[in-house]
Design a protein around this nucleic acid. Structure first.
Lengths: 153, 153
DNA sequence: TATGAAATAATATAGTT
DNA sequence: AACTATATTATTTCATA
């Protein structure tokens, strides 16, 4: 996938404001609206742009707690893995889940209303998923940086 | 901050596609375009919606490696903390950074082109920041889930 | 193959009720 | 909050480099 300088400028503009009108993007890129509209469609069709999302204030939505949860499975059977991944997919409080290297199997990013709610999510839901041996929560004390923007060199 | 059913539907629509036109949001919410436009502005002004970003395919942008990096400081002086946080703010490959509970001070989310690049970021940049004692990288093997969508109950 | 300009279609917002 | 009018924006068409 080859990106030229125009594509990068279009993406950079969207990273600032993904609802920016095509005409405004065109101004910044020294193009007219027509090619911007077409390039945007191409970037979407090629899957480089997967979609657009709002950045929401978690606290204002009632989620005061942000945590990372490390999970170990006790047996790595296909059934356990599939069941665990399904449980994760179904849990709306798990906003990200990665299989990782190191002495844990999975790293989850979880949001919760408060400590009690986090306990429910981890101890009542995640730990009770078949195949899950244990969980360990790391609670976010402060978010120093949280950009979804990617470098475009 | 009180959200009614209309606000929630507006946000839910944006979580599906943040570039969705106001008219399309209006259809889903059983409102006309005018109140959707006004509510949207209100949600932005109140800071519940902090902005809009594109979801980009990291791999297609050349970032094949996704890692979480755990960082310890060796002295928690104000100067060290401020210097570290500035270094994080300046590093475009660090897309998130949290101060966390547990035996590590910070949890960073880092993207890199490849293993060598990750080494550069962690060993040439992060570790050399004054006050940083050590770093430990957890490499993402597979991303099971990665939604930025928040539950709106 | 990709662009700009103009025309048309669609969309957003302000005024009014 | 809806309806209507106006302003803005997106996309298609077409000529051109």
């Amino acid at each position: 996938m080859q990106l030229d300088e125009f594509d990068r400028k279009i993406i950079a503009a969207l990273q600032e404001d993904a609802r920016m009108p095509v005409a405004a993007i065109a101004e910044r890129t020294a193009l007219s609206a027509t090619p911007v509209s077409r390039r945007l469609k191409r970037l979407e069709d090629e899957g480089l742009i997967r979609g657009y999302v709002p950045l929401l204030d978690e606290r204002k939505l009632g989620f005061a707690l942000d945590a990372y949860v490390l999970v170990n499975l006790d047996a790595h059977s296909d059934a356990n893995i599939a069941g665990f991944e399904q449980a994760i997919a179904d849990n709306p409080y798990v906003i990200a889940c990665h299989a990782v290297t190191g002495d844990r199997d999975y790293l989850l990013h979880v949001i919760a209303r408060d400590v009690e709610h986090l306990g429910q999510i981890t101890l009542k839901s995640i730990v009770r998923t078949p195949g899950v041996r244990d969980v360990q929560s790391v609670i976010v004390l402060e978010t120093i940086k949280n950009t979804r923007a990617l470098p475009l060199e």
